[in-house]
Design a protein around this nucleic acid. Structure first.
Lengths: 250, 250
DNA sequence: ATTGGTTTTTGATCTACATCAAGGCGCCGC
DNA sequence: GCGGCGCCTTGATGTAGATCAAAAACCAAT
């Protein structure tokens, strides 16, 4: 039976523009805190492919993704690139207490972010401990995700990497918005082959080949541009190399 | 000229058994907080190779490393292993708010940890915001380290990986305890080839070959068991593939 | 419909690292 | 001194994925 462990707590939808995205925590915000947040927030839109900030550039805001997908990447002098963060709606970017961005932040799709000016945000964080606590939780979740990602990068085969990525997106999409209609799972994979290869530490050709392989074996079906159907989620999961049970991390 | 960017803030030495390791922050502890910490802390020793906890096991404490080296690793069903954390003296393990360990925690060398029972520690964290704030800083540092590590795993060559690892340890050792006597740098590399391979996502044979290569080229000198000398740190740095300037992360 | 740009697929070949397999070296106990 | 055990090194060979190259699919604009 196809059951999709959400892996992340179901964050509130209408809370995407709140830096502290969990509804239960938002509920703890005093009305004047919410009002302050309103005052220091502003929206920015980007087109797919645009860069939000370059590594090393001044970044005087923190933000959360409202719609679309953003990526964090590191680049080596000779151009080799590795993605180190994938931000879906409701995810948070920016490190309180740091002046410049440590990573390239890029819009993978058309993107809307809700930004908060850093200074006042930090002051607010300092005054209201539960915001810091929530941020700690979120950071710990990200750290766990990064560590699972490290296992993927260090030890998984190309096929396992692809299967893992598809499952990761499917999980997040499913828990955020899409229904698993009995067994079958349909969702958007809004990443270019190149973005996938940067995520996985592969070349884009290898990504393409492995996607074709999974398609030929019926593990995934592609419909049109970037719509994907997973006929049997569990069967795909078996290709990831992951423990079938452990599944409580992002 | 050989100058070693510390990359981490110089943590206080005599503060290793404090979970909140930065001296400036420790100074902010009230005396009754320090007393409470005393009450809930206890020490545990392990021999090299021993396991502290297995992934999935109950872990009812948080801890910081006093002496020695501990590792966090993930294991796949078929035995493939990837290290996801390397804990040197003053580093912190354990996630507040989680019952079980997500990773195998292992003593890479003889190890002494200072443990705090989780429940009271969490209560204390809840009551004294600056502990939470300090923990957030530390977690963000770890996240940055993890992301640099991801670049290493995903995009670096075996030779670059080795050079990077040696530099990482050299930096930490140097900033913690050892002097850079004009240009030359001498320190302990207390990891087996196997541990190194788990860190780097390589096999132990490849690690051995690349170490030999660096040795033959005079980039490193090995003395006795695991003592290492780096005659010219900058020259080794060039082999890491890293940007020469950016160097403010762990 | 035609053009031109971007992204994807597929093929042929190459290579860095893995794998398999011996030895070597230091260390401890007898 | 001598065997045994844990590490480490080195060699021979295999292979997954990179690289190079070209064609195909897709899409938007004229």
């Amino acid at each position: 039976m196809t059951r999709i462990a959400p892996k992340i707590q179901p964050y509130s939808q209408d809370c995407n523009d709140c830096p502290i995205r969990h509804r239960a925590v938002c509920a703890r915000c005093e009305s004047d805190e919410l009002e302050l947040l309103e005052q220091i927030k502003y929206y920015r839109s980007f087109e797919a492919g645009q860069t939000v900030v370059w590594a090393g550039d001044r970044m005087d805001f923190v933000a959360s993704v409202v719609t679309g997908i953003a990526t964090l990447s590191q680049t080596m002098e000779d151009g080799r690139r590795q993605m180190v963060g994938l931000l879906l709606p409701s995810d948070f970017v920016g490190r309180p207490g740091r002046e410049t961005s440590a990573y390239d932040v890029t819009a993978a799709t058309d993107l809307v972010m809700c930004c908060f000016r850093k200074k006042p945000f930090e002051e607010m964080m300092f005054r209201t401990p539960h915001i810091g606590q929530r941020l700690l939780e979120m950071t710990l979740d990200e750290l766990d995700a990064a560590r699972e990602w490290m296992l993927l990068l260090g030890r998984k085969t190309a096929r396992e990497k692809i299967a893992s990525l598809v499952c990761i997106i499917a999980r997040r999409d499913a828990s955020l918005q899409l229904q698993a209609s009995d067994g079958e799972l349909r969702f958007d994979l809004p990443l270019t082959r190149e973005a996938m290869s940067e995520y996985l530490g592969l070349t884009l050709e290898t990504v393409s080949r492995q996607m074709s392989a999974l398609r030929k074996e019926g593990l995934i079906v592609t419909e049109g541009k970037r719509q994907i159907v997973i006929p049997d989620f569990d069967r795909l999961l078996e290709e990831t190399g992951d423990d079938s049970d452990g599944g409580f991390l992002v």
